[in-house]
Design a protein around this nucleic acid. Structure first.
Lengths: 337, 337
DNA sequence: CCACTGACGTTTTACGTATAACTACTCCCG
DNA sequence: CGGGAGTAGTTATACGTAAAACGTCAGTGG
């Protein structure tokens, strides 16, 4: 807050109003009922207004020992998805007088860097996406109240978790494709070490395994359009029976699969069904529109923030996964015969 | 920073190391050459390590009167573009020991809210996208050093500005389309009151106007796929000669234009050429790949941060717009004859 | 008439850090 | 052997706020 000609302090306001600094603090902090007269209070407010007084947050934070600021750690800003998470978290936070600061695990800055060097605001707590695993050790070292988003319930050492019911989403995808008659699947898997992506693979295998005559192959791809294209090309030309359905770990991978299919001369959905997961704007921008699992990112953020507020209050956070639902669009059809 | 059992302070470290608090501050602040012996310094560092000491940032900020934290205000998080801006700014900031905090003008929270309530970190300065106009009045009221991204050089009352050379990008688009033989244009304009979007309209008119026989119509659309679709449909069925080229203010609008064209039974690029602006991942996800103006978002963020650092140092920020370049892909072709 | 209460404030203190100002001790040179 | 120059620290203070503890005065009931 350093300015050349320093900003007015509560003491300046006090002097202007002809009262003590304590009185200013009481009035502006709304703690003056029965302690300061209405006329004096109004004089203080008036002085604060004309001086353009704004409290020094560093001093307030130091005094109160709390900041009403929370850090939201996300894997990157590149996805709409985490934009939604932020929006939901910030809305709930605002309702409770809290602010939210973002720490995107940055490429090019290096995860080894102290996350709090990049978000120097003092913090009351942390909400962390499990996908931003790099930063987690540093966070744990800080002993701050922590809520994990989409993290292994057992692995996070007592931290509260909020999860999307991804497994149920994959179940819906599998049942949809099976009911269309598909038997030969490829799972285009995100090449990321994260519990939430393991869930996808496990659930898919669990659903397809018991159905006689099905085959399932997994191909890994980095989460980007280009990476998905080459991985999907490999998937379509691999060994065994030609797959008729491609289950993608997210919508970006699905967009890459479209391109690979075009290059291979395959028509989506008549030659190849494709499904995504996220339901980003991208899903309806591509042709045909993508059948995908809709995730309510804002609700995810809201629930995360509520859970953190609960932890800060010593209450138990709300239990139960967030439901998701499959949105049927134009990228799935019965397999070619 | 409030924890139940309070965190260790520099005084705790001092006690553990058997020195005074001042010595701890000197050692950990790297100001001890010739003031503290190497052995004592090491003892202090060791004590800090075992206690898990981390300085209280609120106290440090209060003491120093500065925070080494900067606020980046962006219109929303939904675009890759501002993710790039953030990445660039954060990289430069980290090189100078600064942190960056984001304030996304949120939907659903309301722009009337004090931006600093949502980013309660104390700040040394602000970098603001001109697209986040709502927040600007509040920012100006705070008298913080300010750098504007893509703002009217005259309109921003003395604040430093960093601009992309959007006008030159539009010039490249116009010349490309004119050289292909197009004469009937529609400008799919973002329905946003912002100087940078006015530049697009002005430059396009300036380039196409002098060429005999050209027509140019402007259609406004909100920046979203759905909004763009209806606007583009209106554009294709409007009065006058049927347009053969659609110049879009950004890539998302272009994606919407693709959908409108498909619905109208028009083939891109043979029946209709489409151009975008941004060069997001979306540009290569859609079919055909989009001819668009590439903006170097990271460089934009870097230059913004450097400009702010310059202002903070009392130096003049680097002058000159950031160059942009047209990327030719598959969405433009000569007009049908 | 005196203790008590309520109204309206003020004085003082603490939060944790960084650093200016000071002290004490040793060494060394003239 | 006196003093100037390091060396190795310590003591004291300020940053701006919130709030606990402390006054002061007028009115009131017993």
């Amino acid at each position: 807050m350093a300015r050349g000609s320093t900003r007015p302090t509560s003491r300046d306001v006090a002097q202007a109003a002809g009262v003590s600094q304590a009185a200013v603090s009481l009035v502006l902090g709304d703690k003056w009922r029965g302690r300061v007269s209405e006329t004096t209070a109004e004089r203080v407010r008036e002085a604060a207004r004309t001086l353009g007084y704004r409290p020094n947050l560093a001093a307030r934070n130091l005094r109160l020992g709390r900041t009403r600021t929370v850090l939201l750690v996300v894997p990157a800003l590149t996805t709409e998805f985490f934009a939604g998470v932020y929006t939901g978290a910030a809305r709930v936070a605002a309702e409770h007088g809290f602010g939210v600061v973002l720490y995107p695990s940055p490429e090019g800055i290096g995860p080894a860097r102290d996350p709090f060097a990049s978000a120097q605001a003092a913090l009351d707590g942390v909400i962390a996406s499990s996908m931003a695993a790099d930063a987690l050790t540093a966070i744990r070292g800080d002993q701050l109240p922590l809520v994990m988003l989409d993290s292994d319930p057992e692995g996070s050492l007592g931290a509260a978790t909020v999860n999307l019911d991804i497994a149920d989403g994959i179940r819906q995808v599998a049942e949809h494709l099976l009911s269309l008659g598909h038997r030969h699947f490829v799972h285009l898997a995100a090449d990321v070490a994260s519990w939430t992506f393991e869930v996808r693979a496990r659930e898919l295998a669990a659903r397809l395994g018991p159905v006689l005559g099905t085959t399932l192959r997994t191909v890994r791809a980095p989460i980007s359009i280009e990476g998905a294209v080459t991985a999907a090309e490999a998937a379509l030309t691999g060994p065994g029976p030609r797959p008729t359905a491609l289950v993608c770990d997210d919508d970006q991978l699905a967009a890459g699969a479209y391109k690979a299919a075009r290059r291979a001369g395959l028509h989506v959905p008549h030659d190849l069904s494709v499904t995504g997961l996220d339901d980003l704007a991208l899903a309806t921008a591509i042709d045909p529109e993508l059948t995908t699992v809709h995730l309510d990112a804002e609700l995810f953020g809201e629930r995360g923030m509520r859970a953190l507020l609960a932890v800060l209050d010593g209450r138990a956070p709300e239990a139960g996964d967030i439901p998701v639902n499959l949105v049927l669009r134009g990228s799935t059809a019965p397999p070619p015969r």
